[in-house]
Design a protein around this nucleic acid. Structure first.
Lengths: 134, 134
DNA sequence: CCTAAAAAGACTTAAACTGTCTTTTTAGGG
DNA sequence: CCCTAAAAAGACAGTTTAAGTCTTTTTAGG
């Protein structure tokens, strides 16, 4: 349970690969897809999401491709994962205040709050630089 | 993302309610279902799973019902959740050794190992006694 | 204009989730 | 020995999500 989807896994693989490439040259989607073993059309969707929020920058047309939107040390694993999977919410009751009408008295609620915070802490502490090994 | 299913949520609600009841008397499924606002037929499936692994004990026939299988201070939230949701695995790559052929060199792998451990730690530290407030 | 490349949107298939319904087994009480 | 209460078990179904695929469009270089 609590499992990352393929999309999330692929997202991480793809952007980590991009982080290993020299930042001054664009990288073809086809290259990334092949390198990390992900269907290119699927990865395209993922990188479109990245692009919208500025995690990567895209160039269209001949000579186009992708580069990181920011230095790898300024992009956390948390950002990458949440970009494609949405906010980390171990239970509905912590997704938004008022989402659960039991949260005022429910003794389990604070446990999920804690779990959420811990996961976010861990993922926020890891950057693409750490993961790229450059 | 990483969200508990309804089944998991209902499982927790149901067994926590059972933990608030006196342990020397069986509790009807219909009572539990009504108290925690869960469809009885669905909760039945959940309690069957609990019963199989001894988390609760069931009695059939007239005067039947459920009691906790062990004292509430000896049942952790982790056990309850994993009973119905399966093992906590933030990513496939940590579900079993050898599951992911990238784990030997993948720098993300240890992060998921860490996340898994933290979640389990938190959930294992909370017991039904803590949650029942008795 | 031709080609390369990403963006966008429609579509599809399979699996998982969230249940319901029916039948069977078990047990107690008269 | 029945009758009834209760859980167990299994089949079934509707909806949603996941995981892609395919096609068309936009953008840019040469």
């Amino acid at each position: 349970m609590m499992e990352l989807t393929r999309k999330g896994e692929y997202a991480v693989r793809g952007i980590v690969y991009l982080a290993t490439r020299p930042g001054d040259r664009v990288c073809l989607l086809s290259e990334i897809a092949e390198a990390v073993d992900v269907p290119q059309t699927f990865l395209a969707k993922i990188f479109q999401q990245f692009s919208k929020i500025g995690l990567v920058r895209s160039y269209r047309g001949t000579g186009g491709g992708f580069v990181l939107g920011r230095p790898p040390e300024n992009i956390s694993l948390l950002e990458v994962v949440e970009a494609v999977e949405g906010p980390i919410t171990p239970n509905r009751c912590v997704s938004a205040p008022g989402e659960c009408d039991r949260s005022s008295f429910c003794k389990v609620h604070p446990v999920w709050v804690d779990v959420q915070a811990r996961i976010r802490d861990i993922l926020a502490s890891v950057t693409l630089k750490d993961l790229s090994g450059r």
